[in-house]
Nucleic acid binder design. Structure first.
Length: 422
RNA sequence: GGAGACGUCGCAUAGUCCGGUCGAGUGCACCACCCUGCUAAGGUGGAGUCCCCGCAAGGGGACCGAGGGUUCAAAUCCCUCCGUCUCCGCCA
């Protein structure tokens, strides 16, 4: 949720942000109107309520024989209070709805426009070339007896899979390696619930435009999370944090579930786009003035991961229209996928500034003792999808795959994944 | 799944049966000051969150797990939900 004070004091800033996102700037005016209506309604209710409270005290202290008379007098007032209260809460609700329809105010410098209007910040690493015809990750995965899509489909349907043998080990190794990097950098590991309540899903902003992306369990009214960001953001909801010792940094380990509605036909081959995968997610609570520095720090860690794994990648500054409502800026790190001849997103890191925290009521105390919303940031440190780039990049002519050195300790010293002869 | 107990201001508790004098007492912790040559103890005062009006001083409203209801008036009465604990059964 955007800052209502900012809305009142600098609506133009928000209008510009809306335009950069390709969203309607009229929503700003709707919200402003709703705000003044809301405040008028509240003032009306509160003055009536004050009158009623004062009367209540008189009734309480009046002699018994006068009470009846006094009570008769206030009855009408009570009805008016009730009505004013209903109006005030209705106005409040309209205001909430209006404000919530506005996306986070983008950070200065974020490119305007949609999906294709990103800015490439840098390309790092040598794009792999082969003196043989490279195989795609699924072909490789099948030869290594590491990925089994057919049985995944048999058991659970399309976009499900089994990771087997070295495939399973590779994923576990990758996740463990990422966890080690997170630990080295002061993150506290957290294994999160993957089923969350509606209000948490709502609060993190995932029930908006992309609600049909999310699995919902009707019997229990719980949602399967598409990222541990949801649980990590909800973790400190309704709390006042002590940020005096520094930011709170968590590394959430969880399985993620996505319906992939609307991406029918896209990336149907292999494990690029699947309904279920694992992810290690960084999540930081910090003071708003430190958020941009922290954002760059998360990005640096992600780049360190890809570099150490020998992957070629580029970093893009995502355009405003492709940010999602909570993010004020988002960097994606995309790895080169040889058989596709292009970069594919492996990680994403978002600075949500105070947007998410305001909705989830996560605050901290400033030097002068005031409470104010914290800033939240998140970023991927590893996911199942990385196997695609790893397998393809490090393949050799005989269909074997070299294990990047940093991963070997997590695979019991295994240096090369060998094809299984059938 | 069955039976019961409970959810109050950072923590621990009082208040709930008998609705108004309770936004709420007490202890601990906390902050400021005073006193005591240190330590311990003692004294005085202050402290919650959110919102509205106001340049400010200040005034006002809401919040006793959440949401409804009864009433002139609800922490207190009624209903629903959520959570915690205990016992029984069941599964492991």
């Amino acid at each position: 949720m955007i800052d209502p004070v900012l809305l009142r004091e600098n609506p133009d800033l928000i209008r510009r942000s809306q335009e950069a996102r390709g969203d309607s700037p009229d929503l700003v005016d709707d919200a402003l109107n709703a705000d003044s209506e809301r405040r008028a309604a509240i003032t009306e209710f509160e003055s009536l309520r004050a009158e009623q409270n004062a009367f209540g005290k008189r009734v309480a202290s009046a002699p018994q024989e006068e009470k009846k008379e006094l009570v008769a007098q206030v009855q009408q007032l009570a009805a008016k209070v009730k009505q004013a209260q209903a109006q005030a809460s209705a106005a409040e609700e309209r205001f909430e709805t209006a404000v919530r329809s506005i996306g986070n105010v983008i950070i200065e410098g974020v490119p305007a426009g949609g999906e294709d209007d990103f800015v490439t910040l840098r390309e790092v690493g040598r794009i792999p070339s082969f003196d043989f015809e490279p195989l795609d990750h699924l072909e490789l995965g099948e030869r290594l007896d590491a990925i089994d899509m057919a049985r995944g489909a048999k058991v659970s349907g399309a976009r499900f899979y089994f990771l087997k043998g070295v495939g399973a080990r590779l994923e576990i190794g990758l996740m463990n390696y990422a966890l080690a990097v997170a630990l080295e950098n002061g993150f506290t590991p957290l294994i999160t619930p993957t089923l969350v309540k509606p209000e948490i899903m709502q609060g993190t902003g995932f029930l908006g435009a992309h609600a049909d992306e999310i699995y919902h369990l009707g019997t229990d009214d719980l949602y399967l999370t598409g990222t541990s960001e949801v649980a990590l953001a909800g973790y400190h909801s309704d709390e006042i944090l002590d940020l005096e010792p520094g930011p709170l940094r968590y590394a959430g380990w969880s399985t993620c579930f996505r319906r992939e509605a609307g991406s029918g036909g896209k990336d149907t081959r292999g494990i690029i786009r699947v309904h279920q995968f694992n992810k290690l997610e960084m999540f930081v609570y910090t003071r708003p003035e430190d958020a941009e520095t922290e954002h760059l720090r998360l990005l640096a860690l992600q780049e360190q991961m890809l570099q150490s794994l020998g992957l070629a990648y580029r970093v893009i500054d995502t355009a405003a229209g492709d940010l999602g409502s909570s993010a004020a800026r988002k960097y994606d790190v995309e790895a080169w996928v040889p058989t596709q001849g292009r970069y594919r997103e492996l990680t994403s890191t978002s600075n949500c500034t105070t947007f998410q925290a305001r909705r989830l009521q996560t605050r901290y105390r400033t030097e002068n003792g005031k409470t104010t919303p914290v800033a939240t940031l998140n970023g991927t440190l590893a996911t199942t999808r990385w196997l695609v780039a790893l397998l393809e990049t490090h393949q050799r002519a005989d269909g074997s795959v070299t294990v990047p050195e940093v991963l070997r300790p997590y695979l019991g010293g295994l240096e090369v994944l060998q094809p299984v002869v059938k």
